[in-house]
């Protein structure tokens, strides 16, 4: 839960920082952790404003704790804890940053991350549902023939290009649902820099329910229900994990780009 308000009893997670460092270093290190995910996403002016306000706020907190009689280092650590766990603070900021840039009412209502995740996983769902329907309702193998035969394809693409000998029911029916959440999750993570896993989870819920409903209509053929079950136990966790990886990758890529831009401008 990233909402700002919570009860005092719920102490925020302790920032893991190495021991025996000057208070100013602790604060700078903490601010670096908060602001690192913003690089390449949030314009410099906005993130430097956020950083400056945070530095002032933590400074004030530290002073107030010191006025209560705490030693400087303890007061700094306490101030940092009160300000919040860096991941949570930066996630909340990024979410708000995106929400404030989105104009559509629908986007604002359901959240842009949820909307993107729902669209991407929805496309994967539609593709696979269509494939299942074809598989179930057309004679076996009929739907998976190549538009041209392997011999005809060989005339178009001579050696050494590999030509598949068949569509491969196995690859489609088993490969697609295995690969889909990995690709879709990564793509969502790449697009949504904060809370991507949560977005995937929330988007997958109605999709899984839809799968079970469609699966029930297909009874007594149980393939649809099995797919729904597979989505619940595989798509959700793998999609969430892939989304986290995608976010991390996107952030690192953004930082690399920003660094290159800085070096280029210094070189010029």
């Amino acid at each position: 839960m990233l909402s700002p308000f919570k009860f005092r009893q719920q102490e925020s997670r302790v920032l893991r920082v190495s021991e025996a460092r000057p208070p100013e270093d602790l604060i700078e290190d903490y601010l670096d952790h908060i602001c690192a995910p913003f690089v390449g996403i949030v314009p410099f002016d906005e993130r430097s404003r956020f950083r400056e306000e945070a530095a002032f706020h933590i400074d004030r907190l530290q002073q107030s704790y010191q006025a209560e009689g705490m030693p400087a280092e303890e007061a700094t650590r306490r101030a940092i804890r009160t300000y919040g766990e860096p991941g949570q603070v930066s996630d909340r900021y990024l979410e708000s940053f995106y929400e404030n840039r989105v104009q559509s009412a629908l986007f604002k209502r359901i959240g842009s991350g949820n909307f993107i995740a729902f669209c991407i996983f929805g496309v994967a769902q539609i593709l696979y549902t269509a494939l299942l329907q074809v598989h179930v309702f057309l004679p076996s193998g009929e739907a998976y023939r190549l538009p041209v035969s392997p011999a005809e394809a060989r005339q178009l693409l001579p050696e050494p290009f590999p030509i598949p000998q068949s569509w491969g029911d196995f690859a489609l029916l088993y490969g697609l649902p295995i690969v889909a959440p990995i690709l879709a999750g990564f793509f969502v993570g790449y697009q949504v820099p904060a809370g991507a896993s949560r977005s995937v989870f929330q988007a997958m819920m109605p999709i899984v329910i839809y799968s079970f409903v469609v699966g029930s209509f297909m009874l007594p053929i149980t393939t649809g229900l099995l797919f729904g079950l597979f989505q619940a136990v595989f798509w959700i966790p793998v999609g969430c994990l892939a989304a986290s990886v995608g976010t991390t990758y996107a952030q690192r890529r953004a930082i690399r780009h920003a660094k290159r831009a800085i070096f280029r401008s210094e070189g010029a």
Partner: peptide
């Protein structure tokens, strides 16, 4: 009674 992570106030 009402407290919060101060950093989340700014968004």
């Amino acid at each position: 009674v009402i407290s919060f992570n101060h950093g989340t106030l700014y968004p």
